[in-house]
């Protein structure tokens, strides 16, 4: 019997199969990455002891009411005014006694913190090592920030207290949050231009990190008012 050549497999339909798969993936997947606003919720603690007292001058009150109107320190304001108002209060360049305390940061206090973190790192076991290392790096970066920004590195003791009533709309809440963040961004941007001569978008990651230390975001959210 003559040896029969086995016929070659026809690969012509391979393309069709691949196309089918391709179209399936195109339909079931999405390319756009969602952007969002991140928030770390406060941990739930069991004890109901009253919170530590806060000096009233350090609190910046912002409230959204049921009619989606915004009260800033008890006064009705437009949302566009929020960044400027918050900036003024955080900087407190005129040293007003009813505005948040802002004091100069000294090299010694940062050094104390570095030494403390070094000791923690030495004692840390394997599990805690990574986080201790991160803390030490952060405190060292803070010292570097002081060297770069000098007397502009001030510690502000402000807390932005964001409150809303139950009937307020989510959109207003997000807008308000956005405008508060804009205040911080603008503060950082101003300092970057003043000291480094570049705007926020032209900075390196480390410089951004340092500016975030200089103007630390401190927004606290009070529970919704019934």
């Amino acid at each position: 019997m003559p040896k029969r050549q086995s016929p070659e497999v026809n690969a012509g339909s391979m393309a069709d199969i691949a196309f089918l798969l391709l179209i399936f993936f195109l339909v079931t997947s999405e390319m756009t990455q969602e952007s969002g606003m991140f928030q770390l919720l406060p941990e739930k603690v069991a004890d109901t002891s009253p919170p530590p007292p806060v000096n009233k001058r350090n609190v910046i009150e912002v409230l959204v009411n049921n009619n989606n109107l915004i009260l800033f320190e008890g006064k009705l304001v437009k949302i566009e005014e929020i960044p400027t108002l918050v900036k003024e209060m955080i900087l407190n360049s005129s040293n007003r006694t009813d505005w948040p305390v802002s004091r100069a940061v000294t090299e010694e206090e940062l050094q104390v913190r570095i030494d403390k973190n070094k000791k923690v790192l030495e004692k840390a076991n394997e599990a805690a090592q990574a986080s201790a290392e991160r803390k030490l790096k952060k405190s060292e970066l803070r010292l570097k920030a002081l060297q770069v920004f000098g007397e502009d590195f001030r510690k502000s003791e402000h807390v932005v207290n964001m409150q809303a009533t139950q009937g307020a709309e989510y959109e207003t809440y997000i807008l308000l949050k956005d405008h508060l963040k804009q205040a911080y961004k603008s503060l950082r941007n101003d300092l970057a231009i003043k000291v480094l001569g570049r705007g926020w978008s032209d900075l390196t990651l480390q410089e951004k990190e340092m500016l975030k230390m200089v103007y630390k975001e401190n927004i606290s959210e009070a529970p919704v008012i019934q």
Partner: peptide, 23 residues
């Protein structure tokens, strides 16, 4: 309404899921 949102956030805190991203 924010009342509903905050109820959900309370639930998240109860479940100790503290990292929230508002899309």
């Amino acid at each position: 309404k924010l009342g509903v949102v905050s109820e959900v956030k309370e639930e998240l805190r109860d479940a100790s899921a503290l990292k929230v991203n508002y899309i």
